[in-house]
């Protein structure tokens, strides 16, 4: 758990980097900090592991005020991933991944086991990469190692500063998927800085939108997209916010709320699985010029979906979130 209470930071007595931030990130929750550059999102993140100091306010990690815990000790309990991966070029992959356990004085056997586990977790062969050096790896692999290193000592909290920002779009998407998968397994409390709204919608349990050191809105992705609090948020999330919100729901969510169209002649209509996202359904409807798609679950036909059904569902969600 991470809690910010009235956190402010002033640089050189004049530049107000952060003003009165109140934020609560629950255990096992992933909160995405997002906003235009210079909004203070990275500063807020770096306050947690005390790479920056705050001017006033409090940060509580699991009931402990960070000011009262030793800096070095706090940092070793926090996984830290940065954009350029920050791997140490002089160390092998194993040494890099195991650096925090090593600092904590784990014995060799325990380290070995943990290295194996982590490499399996990030989908890389432990024995193949153990003795390699960072420069021998591709950008995507390096970033995976960066994530493994942050997870090494099993810290309850992870700080991720645009971890996938420097990767090309295809690799970025894949690493996002992989990290979501990992997060489902390890359930860390994550603060994640991003500048990409799509990434925020995809990854976040909560999105924290910032501007000029102030928090504009901190809500679930659905709420941010369907009910932006003010003009700035609306503009930042983009005009296609309703379209983006379709990524948050699957047909399974839809059939719980609204009725599908009755089954008509389906011979010429493609079918779609119940687990497809509404975004995907919507694109298919637009792209292939079909009026309707057949919704199936394990070969059982449930009904037909068309654009008006989706529209109805989104309107309903919008009302529910009010």
């Amino acid at each position: 758990m991470i809690q910010f209470k009235q956190v402010s930071k002033v640089y050189n007595d004049e530049v107000q980097a952060l003003r009165g931030i109140n934020l609560h990130v629950k255990e096992g929750e992933m909160a995405i900090l997002i906003g235009p550059s210079g909004c203070g999102k990275t500063t807020l993140l770096r306050l947690v592991n005390q790479l920056e100091t705050m001017t006033s306010g409090e940060i509580i990690l699991h009931k402990e005020n960070i000011k009262q815990i030793d800096k070095i000790k706090v940092r070793r309990q926090i996984g830290y991933v940065i954009q350029s991966n920050g791997l140490f070029p002089n160390m092998t992959i194993e040494k890099n991944v195991m650096i925090v356990p090593d600092l904590l004085g784990w014995d060799r056997e325990k380290q070995k086991k943990r290295f194996h586990y982590l490499m399996e977790l990030i989908g890389m062969n432990p024995d193949e990469y153990r003795r390699r050096y960072p420069h021998e790896l591709s950008g995507g692999q390096q970033q995976r190692i960066g994530v493994a290193r942050a997870l090494a000592a099993d810290p309850p909290i992870m700080l991720m500063d645009e971890p996938f920002g420097a990767l090309d779009p295809i690799i970025r998407l894949r690493l996002q998927e992989e990290f979501l998968q990992i997060q489902r397994e390890v359930r860390k409390t994550v603060l994640f800085v991003s500048h990409d709204m799509d990434e925020a919608v995809k990854m976040g349990d909560k999105i924290v939108l910032m501007r000029n050191g102030e928090m504009m809105q901190a809500d679930t992705p659905a709420k941010i997209l369907l009910h932006p609090k003010n003009h700035f948020v609306e503009e930042f999330v983009g005009e296609d916010r309703i379209l983006k919100s379709l990524k948050l729901y699957t047909l399974r969510d839809l059939v719980k709320e609204v009725n599908l169209c009755s089954i008509t002649d389906i011979n010429d209509k493609p079918s779609i699985n119940l687990d497809a996202s509404l975004h995907h359904v919507f694109s298919m409807l637009l792209h292939q010029g079909y009026q309707q798609l057949a919704v199936v679950e394990q070969d059982k036909l449930l009904g037909m979906v068309d654009i008006s059904v989706i529209e109805q569902f989104i309107r309903l969600e919008q009302q529910k979130l009010l």
Binding site: K73, Y80, F88, P89, V100
Partner: peptide, 19 residues
């Protein structure tokens, strides 16, 4: 960035220097 990472994962000044 490497120095930042070394700091951020909890190395002391001396460990950072040596390692």
């Amino acid at each position: 960035k490497i120095r930042d990472a070394a700091k951020g994962i909890g190395m002391t000044t001396f460990q950072r220097l040596i390692r």
